[in-house]
Design a protein around this nucleic acid. Structure first.
Length: 129
RNA sequence: GGCGUGGGUCAGGUGGCCGCUUGCCUGAUUUCAGGUGAGAGGAAAGUCCGGACUCCACAGGGCAGGGUGCUGGGUAACGCCCAGGCGGAGCAAUCCGACAUGAGCGCCACAGAAAAUAUACCGCCCCGGACCAUCCUCGGAUGGCCAGGGGUAAGGGUGAAAUGGUGGGGUAAGAGCCCACCGCGUCCGCGGCGACGCGGAUGGCAGGGUAAGCAUCACCCGGAGCAAGACCAAAUAGGAGGACACGCCGAACGGCCUGCUUGGCUUUGCACGGCAAACGCCGUGUGAAGGUGAGUCGGGACGUUCGGGAGAGGUCGGCCCGGCCGAGGUUCUCGGGUAGGUCGCUGGAGGCUUAUGGUAACAUAAGCCCAAGAGACAUGGUCACCGCCGUAUGCACGAUCGAUACGGAACAGAAUCCGGCUUAUCGACCCGCCCCAUAC
RNA sequence: GGUCCCAUCGUCUAGCUUGGCCCAGGACGGCACCCUCUCAAGGUGCAGACACGGGUUCAAAUCCCGUUGGGACCA
């Protein structure tokens, strides 16, 4: 399984107009730890963008938020439904939360929004548990 | 042992798995895969100073503007650092100080007699005078009160600040009027590169605060900033550079354009008359339009000649003197530049060790070492173990060590690079010094 | 990354240049009372702010320094 994830690295959104389009046309979901906005892109793969504003904190806090959610996307990217653009807004409590609890919240949220297949092996990272 | 104070170092470590950026090598020779190495800080922050670097400008001078401000040194430079002086805080180690000048202008609310000018209000004292009262030797004396002349600056609710302070002498009352001590000023000598210090003589008291108010003095500063700048270079759009002679004002002449006046012509409307059956045609008068001839009356640009004269504007990135360029036209040449890309981009006033000089900051020499360079933004995520700190529990005669559980580990993320300052910061360790207590 | 500007009642502002009359003025808004049969309008009164921390000064909204929070511009 790890071979598969290493063969298809996640694609990230980079252009400003892509972010504006998703924020304008997408569907919003709010949780305690992050907000997700998603819309259909028509492309053959899923694309993900992470937005950390100045409200989140100083540069160290913003970098940490981006890194945590980039790792989450990287570990679960092979389960994503193709053809969607997703923008994530991390929130303050996600930085203090334990990693496994945050990952469970992340997977259940995405499955409920039909952006992700239920992974057949429970999760690639939880194999130690 | 406790309290305090100054300086320095560090900013958890190791390993597994999964990832990111990148140098080199190999395969492939756009991409990609493998191997191997590197990958945030003491403040990377604030952008408060100073430089390097790059472009623009630049003969030079003056003014303005900004900054610094005890003295000497260090440095590429600084508002930084070191050493010293002076003032202040502290028992002390030590710390703090925009700490130059007081010539001129401005301001000093309220209160107060008065707020910067030397005098004056109340008061105190003396003098002579008018009135009243008492005594009376009927000359006057004493006291009160009223105005006047003079002497004073002792005292005067104030105020942030009041014209040296304390004590004594002196006087009608007083006053540096005189004396002693202290303070202050001036002069001289000595020490020091200097800021300044010490000693002596002397003056009789100069003269408020504020310059982080305007100012003066000394020194420094050209402007902008890596989004600086250099190179390559789509689509679209036409521009850019060089050379040439004339460029301004006045007068005369020449032709051109236009307005006006006037003559005739063409077309057409109206009125009258004539011819004609009618359509219509002809003549006269009048109005409009068009082009045209003349007048040279008015205006415009152009050319030639003559005379006068260097003119508008721009630039020197605040202004002036001064310097330089110089509109539009003709002709010649073909590049300039946006998106995008590449470079600038990290080897440097570099670090460490030793030696020498210097009280020190620092400098010099030798040896060794190479340590991030992005472009939507890399330097991470997770697990385990070890180490540190705190609390609780149990064991233990008590303490240290050790055990178990829980909790904690800050401030903070390079963006051209350096030297500083300031601000944020849980802590750990090392070195020096002061004071207190105890022991010897 | 760099260059600069601003901060005053709930809101918009005056005062800052030249410190004192300022326990900071005005407008809109809020509250209470009067007027009216009631509401509106009107009248009277009240509450309410110098972003924060130091320094200079007798005295700071004002001058100087630092911090915080906003905003503008530069390819």
């Amino acid at each position: 399984m790890s071979d598969v994830s290493s063969r298809c690295p996640p694609v990230f959104l980079k252009k400003t107009e892509d972010f504006e389009r998703v924020k304008r046309e997408g569907k919003r979901t709010t949780t305690r730890f992050f907000n997700v906005v998603s819309c259909r892109s028509g492309l053959g793969n899923a694309r993900v963008g992470i937005v950390v504003g100045r409200r989140l904190g100083n540069a160290v806090v913003r970098n940490r938020g981006k890194r945590i959610f980039r790792e989450l996307v990287r570990h679960t990217y092979q389960c994503f439904v193709k053809g969607h653009d997703i923008v994530i807004f991390p929130k303050r409590p996600a930085l203090e939360l334990n990693h496994q609890r945050l990952q469970e919240a992340w997977i259940t949220t995405l499955i409920s929004q039909e952006l992700m297949f239920a992974p057949n092996p429970p999760a690639p990272l939880v194999r130690g548990a």
